[in-house]
């Protein structure tokens, strides 16, 4: 329960927990928004923009709550615009470049499937304000999961080219999946307080959904025992995040005293 330097308080743990959830959604939403106007068909321009909108909307609500928990007079934008790479705790999975449409879909599927099981359990959290948010977002997460799962099937069991492309995307993404289930003292605190979930409880369910979907899509399930990346929850990232933040934050930071809401 204790870190090497100091004892983690419940407030700090809850703040970190909320920021981890929020960072994942902001960074993935930001990444997906790059598709806007560049999708493979109009319907997908709409769908991906819609998913981005949901994700960034979820992040905004989580940051607002984080600001309340932190109680230092910050607002939601503080967390998005005035933190640097090392302070962002999003999964590396979320920050990777958008790749081709298949890569974007494969990543969304892995992430949305995880979010689905996670939020299904977060519904039970002992905090009404938090669960109000969770319930609202869960409806949208279900849509993201259905949309990305259907596209995994289409691309996997479509043409030879689409099959090969999305197989390659899953192969590439696999080493970033273990971090979804990373847990540390923050999670321990939250579980103890009835605010967080133990992700090891639904790891098998998540794996089964992923394996069943890939199998139905005639894809090969990559090796779960391969080398897996780690560190993002402690602020260790690929080089891609810094560039994304530079772009995302530049205007706000150039004129920090201006009103931009």
């Amino acid at each position: 329960m204790s870190t090497a330097t100091k004892e983690l308080t419940k407030q700090e743990a809850f703040l970190t927990y909320l920021l981890r959830l929020a960072d994942d959604r902001l960074i993935l939403g930001q990444r997906n928004s790059e598709w806007c106007g560049h999708g493979p068909q109009l319907e997908e321009d709409l769908a991906i923009a819609n998913i981005s909108l949901d994700l960034i909307g979820h992040a905004t609500a989580l940051y607002e709550y984080a600001a309340e928990v932190e109680d230092e007079g910050h607002d939601e934008d503080h967390f998005a615009y005035f933190r640097d790479d090392r302070e962002f705790t999003n999964l590396q999975l979320c920050e990777l470049p958008k790749g081709d449409f298949g890569f974007t879909i494969a990543r969304q599927f892995l992430f949305s499937a995880f979010s689905y099981f996670q939020y299904e359990r977060l519904k039970e959290a002992q905090d009404e304000q938090f669960t109000g948010m969770v319930n609202k977002h869960l409806k949208e997460i279900k849509y993201h999961l259905r949309h990305s799962r259907e596209w995994v099937l289409r691309l996997g069991d479509g043409t030879e080219e689409s099959h090969n492309r999305i197989q390659e995307s899953f192969d590439e993404l696999w080493m970033y999946t273990d971090e979804l289930f990373y847990m540390d003292e923050v999670d321990e605190w939250m579980i103890k307080e009835g605010l967080g979930v133990d992700s090891s409880e639904f790891k098998d369910e998540w794996k089964k959904l992923v394996e069943d979907t890939l199998t139905e899509a005639t894809l090969t399930v990559p090796d779960w025992d391969q080398f897996m990346m780690s560190g993002s929850r402690k602020g260790i990232h690929t080089e891609h995040l810094g560039h994304m933040l530079a772009q995302m934050q530049f205007l706000r930071r150039s004129y920090p005293d201006a009103e931009w809401k």
Binding site: C36, A49, I56, T60, Y81, M244, M248, R252
Partner: peptide
Amino acid sequence: IERAPSLKRKLVLLAKVQ
């Protein structure tokens, strides 16, 4: 969209383009 100066403005712009 990617450079919008606040989360609110980012959401507004994304919704508009959608």
